[in-house]
Design a protein around this nucleic acid. Structure first.
Length: 530
DNA sequence: ACTCGGCCCGC
DNA sequence: AGCGGGCCGAG
């Protein structure tokens, strides 16, 4: 009888250890990145038992001899505090629930507040929180909870990076005992497995109080990952924290048991320039030629001039706006030049996206749209206008009387008001010109015709005898049509505006209207004079 | 000269 | 209470 009992005992241990092994391997696979937590000071029998697991691992592939040796050693190593029979122990291990963060905190929801800022430090919202429905960070006890009476969850702040050290900043709000810097809640998982943290604020400490804060945390015995040895106070990132949840289970028999600490995603200080949300407030131009080099003024939320770039994208194409650190104005403005578009032969406008990107963490702002327009070798129609004028026998008066005062003469520094006024760019000017010339035409039609006119050989099509037969019936096929093509953009049919009914004054107004606010007037005049 | 930390204040 | 703007001396 004795030997049978002994055998049962041995089997009991064997099976217990075997299952321990399986369970632990399973857990390791689940959380490979997290360091195994050391036993808490109040270490329960379960924790100390599981630390012996490495020995029975041999059991699975060892010889019979090794098995018995291992078992013997294991029995001897079993601490006297282990008062439970193996089966019950096994049952409890198998039944251990896990703590899961079911609602992460919003990563850039709020500012960390100093104690001196008084009142409350606000509440951390949930990641899926929105204007209409607010959520809070929440945890859930998942898995079997049959024999659990209640759970106690201690929340503290830890550093963003591994090893997660206690963070000097404090949690304040509901369930945070005064000046403890931590939050403690106890609840019955049978009533609700889930617990939301409704009022958790982050109160930051001043640098000079950093050490005192850590000391206080230590005195509360809060160091979830037992990192005390790895000290390095200076390099603590004061702008990012994680919530750390330590869960203590209380069983029906009054015994207690700790789960591995679990951390949330990082929470960043909304005010810190190094981690804040990037935002483009406005651009003075939203379009430019595909050749690039268009100077654009951007207003944005605070950035760091040495850690910011402007990214243009479309499909797989990506290029950066060009600027130097000195082009970043007091952290809130950037003067940059557009990069050339990948395709210099586009025939239609191309929409690309443009965003601010922080180099250090690859964080990006919401994108805004920028439009690349096709390259036009004579963008301001200088040659054409000169031709129009000479052909229509306009006097010198026509181009000198209509003086245009540019709001930003070259060389002057534009004020911020000028920036916001957003004068039309040269291409808007071009569109106006064509619109004025061809009032019945849509701007894109006009620009297409502009392009066609510029294409070498395009005019030759008209001298091809076979071309005339394919012309629309209304097209003027007068005798001079084949010889005076240089004039055809004014008098050759329905597709081209006839200027002959304008008098001098009207034509001047037309030209000037189209040119108003275009800072390129100086260039036009110079060319005219040449 | 510029940026950041800490603080104040008003909506 | 909660949030954001902004001031200003220190770094």
């Amino acid at each position: 009888l004795l030997s049978v009992m002994f055998l049962i005992l041995i089997l009991n241990y064997f099976l217990t250890d075997f299952f321990f092994k399986i369970i632990n391997e399973h857990r390791d696979q689940q959380m490979p990145s997290l360091p195994r937590p050391p036993s808490p000071p109040s270490g329960s029998h379960l924790q100390s038992q599981s630390t012996n697991v490495s020995k029975p691992r041999l059991v699975a592939r060892g010889t019979a001899c090794q098995v018995s040796v291992c078992l013997f050693r294991n029995m001897m190593a079993t601490p006297p505090s282990c008062s439970l029979p193996g089966t019950e122990l096994l049952e409890r291990v198998l039944e251990r629930p896990t703590l899961v963060v079911v609602e992460e905190p919003k990563d850039r929801g709020m500012r960390f507040r100093y104690e001196c800022e008084g009142r409350s430090a606000g509440s951390i919202l949930g990641a899926s929180s929105s204007e209409s429905s607010k959520t809070q960070p929440a945890i859930e006890i998942q898995g079997p909870i049959d024999h659990i009476k209640k759970v106690k969850v201690t929340v503290s702040l830890v550093t963003k990076d591994i090893p997660h050290r206690p963070h000097p900043h404090c949690l304040v709000g509901k369930d945070c005992p005064h000046s403890s810097g931590i939050c403690v809640v106890t609840f019955n998982p049978h009533v609700n497995r889930r617990h939301s943290f409704a009022n958790l604020g982050i109160q930051c400490v001043r640098r000079k109080e950093l050490e005192a804060s850590l000391q206080k945390r230590r005195s509360l015995n809060i160091d979830p990952f037992q990192t005390d040895l790895s000290r390095g106070i200076e390099d603590i990132d004061m702008n990012a924290v994680r919530l750390c949840f330590q869960c203590e289970l209380e069983w029906e028999d009054g015994k207690k048991d700790c789960l591995k600490p679990v951390v949330s995603k990082p929470i960043y200080d909304k005010k810190a320039t190094t981690t804040s949300q990037l935002k483009i407030t406005r651009l003075n131009l939203d379009r430019g030629p595909c050749t690039g080099k268009t100077e654009v003024y951007m207003l944005c939320d605070k950035v760091q001039k040495d850690d910011i770039e402007i990214v243009f994208r479309r499909d797989s194409w990506k290029a950066n706006g060009e600027f130097a650190q000195t082009d970043v104005h007091r952290q809130v403005g950037i003067v940059f030049k557009t990069p050339p578009y990948q395709d210099q032969n586009i025939t239609e406008e191309v929409e690309v996206s443009l965003c601010l990107r922080r180099i250090s963490d690859q964080m990006e702002s919401e994108p805004v749209t920028f439009i690349y327009s096709p390259h036009n070798p004579d963008p301001y129609e200088v040659k054409r206008k000169r031709k129009i004028k000479s052909d229509m026998s306009f006097t010198e008066r026509a181009c000198t009387s209509g003086k245009v005062i540019s709001p930003n003469p070259p060389g002057s520094t534009p004020s911020s008001e000028d920036l916001l006024r957003a004068p039309p760019g040269p291409f808007q000017g071009e569109a106006c010109y064509m619109e004025a010339q061809c009032p019945n035409m849509a701007p894109d039609e006009a620009s297409l015709i502009n392009q066609l006119m510029e294409m070498p050989g395009f005019m030759d099509i008209f001298s091809d005898p076979s071309f005339s037969s394919s012309l629309p019936s209304g097209f003027d096929q007068g005798p001079e049509a084949s010889t005076t093509f240089t004039n055809m953009d004014m008098n050759s049919g329905p597709y081209f505006q006839d200027f002959s009914h304008y008098n001098d004054l009207q034509f001047n107004m037309l030209v000037n209207e189209s040119q108003t606010a275009s800072s390129e007037m100086v260039q036009v005049k110079t060319e005219d004079e040449v």
